[in-house]
Computed example of a mutant assay.
Amino acid sequence: MTTSAVAGTFGVLHEGHKALIRRAFETGDRVLVGITSDEMSSGGREVSVPLEIRMRELRRFLDTFGRYDLFVIDDIYGPSDKMDDVDVLVVSEESLPNGRLINERRESRGIRKLELSVVPLINADDGGKISASAILRGEYSRSGRRDVIDIAVGSLNPVKVQAVRNVMERIYGEVRITAVDVQGDVPQQPFGDETRLGAENRSRNALGGHDLGVGIEAGVFEFPDGLYDIQHCAVTDRGGRTTYGQGSGFRYPDDIAGLVRGGMTVGDAVRRLYGNNGIGKRQGAVGMLSKGLLDRLGLTEQSVTAAMIPRIWEG
C-alpha cells in the first residue's frame, strides 16, 4: 500500500490546490492532507482566513474522493508520527524546495526519502500562477478568470466574505470577490431598523466600480418573549437598485440579553459571560448557543441568499 501526502494553507481552494489533491489520490492508496494552523498561515500574508473556514471548504472537496486523513500542521515537516510512513509527497513547482528540505531532514533521521511528485503550476488569465492572495484581493476567480461578475463585500470579516463567496458561486458559477473596509454608519450594536440601514449603507459604500456591493449587518430585535438576533443583507447594483434579505432569527439567553440592553455589544456580552474570544469572527454566538448545529457562516449565507432571491427569479 502506497501512502501519499499533500499539504498547504488552502486560503481559498483554487484550481492549483485541486490539481495537487487529485495527484495525491492518483498516487496513493492512503492519502494524508496537512493544512496549516492559523499561526503558520498568518505569517507574511495580507489576509488570513481562519482555520475553521479553510478546513470546512477543504473537507467538502476531499469528501468527493473518499477516505483521507486531514490534520493541522505547524511547520513544513508535519507530525513525524504521520509523515514518517509516507511514500510520496505531492508538491508544486513552487514548493519543491520545501520537499527537498523535508527529504534532507528525513535522511538525517535515518528515514527513507520521499518520492517527490511535482505538479505543474496552473496559471491565471494574466499568465501568472493562480494565487489565493490574489483571489482574496478580488483580482480573479478561483480558476484565474477576470471576465466574471465583480462583487464587493462591505466588510473585512472573513466569515462574511466567505458567506458571500459561497452563495454567489452557487448563483453565478465563477465570481470575483473583494473585501472592502467600510462602515455601516449605525451604532456598533444595531437595534431594530438600524440593522437593515447598516446593511444597506455597507452595500452602497462598498459598491464603487464593482458590479454588486453586498452589506451584511447583524442586529438585535425585541419580541414579546425576549431579545432576538436577526442578520440582514443588502445587495446594491450599479443601477442603484438594492434588494434585501434576512436570516433566521434566534433568541438570546436572558443573561446575554440583559447586558446588551444595558449597552454592550453581543460580542462583549458573550466574552464577559463565557470568555469566548474571537467569537464574532469564527462560529459566532449562534454556534456556541446551538452547540454547533448552526454557525455564523451558515446564518450569514441565509441572509445573502434571501437578498439575492429577487435577482434570481428575475434573471
Rank of each mutant, 00 (worst) to 15 (best):
D85M: 04
G184D: 15
L293M: 09
G219W: 10
F10V: 12
S117C: 12
I130G: 05
G11V: 01
P253L: 07
V72K: 13
A206K: 03
G258R: 14
G275C: 02
P79Q: 11
A19N: 07
S95I: 07
T242H: 06
T27M: 09
R60H: 03
L101Q: 10
P224F: 06
A307K: 12
R22D: 15
R145M: 05
N157E: 11
F65K: 13
R54L: 11
E217S: 09
V12P: 04
R176C: 06
M1G: 07
I309R: 13
H210Q: 01
P253Y: 04
V266E: 12
G262L: 06
I135H: 03
S108D: 12
N98W: 06
A132M: 13
G278S: 09
N276P: 00
R60I: 00
R30L: 01
Y244S: 00
K82N: 03
A24M: 01
I76G: 01
T243S: 15
V6N: 02
T243Y: 11
R100F: 02
E194R: 01
I279F: 11
M40F: 15
M308H: 10
G198R: 04
P253R: 05
G78I: 02
L259W: 05
Q302S: 07
L259V: 03
C233K: 08
L212Q: 05
M55P: 00
Q231G: 06
D237E: 06
R100D: 11
P310C: 07
S4Y: 06
L121Y: 12
A132P: 10
E314F: 04
C233S: 15
E217C: 12
R142T: 13
T2V: 14
R261V: 06
N277Y: 13
R296I: 01
G43R: 14
R54F: 10
F221D: 09
S290F: 07
P224R: 08
I177E: 11
L20T: 04
E104K: 11
G278F: 07
Q302D: 11
E26T: 11
V286T: 01
D84E: 15
L32Q: 07
N123E: 14
E115H: 10
L212E: 09
R23H: 04
R67C: 00
T27L: 10
I149T: 05
L297W: 01
L297D: 00
E107L: 13
T242E: 09
F61D: 08
G154E: 13
G287F: 10
S248C: 03
V286L: 02
Q183V: 03
Q183E: 14
S143N: 13
L289G: 05
V164P: 03
T195F: 09
R271Y: 14
M55R: 15
Y77H: 13
G219V: 08
A7W: 03
A306H: 07
L70T: 02
D81E: 15
Y172W: 06
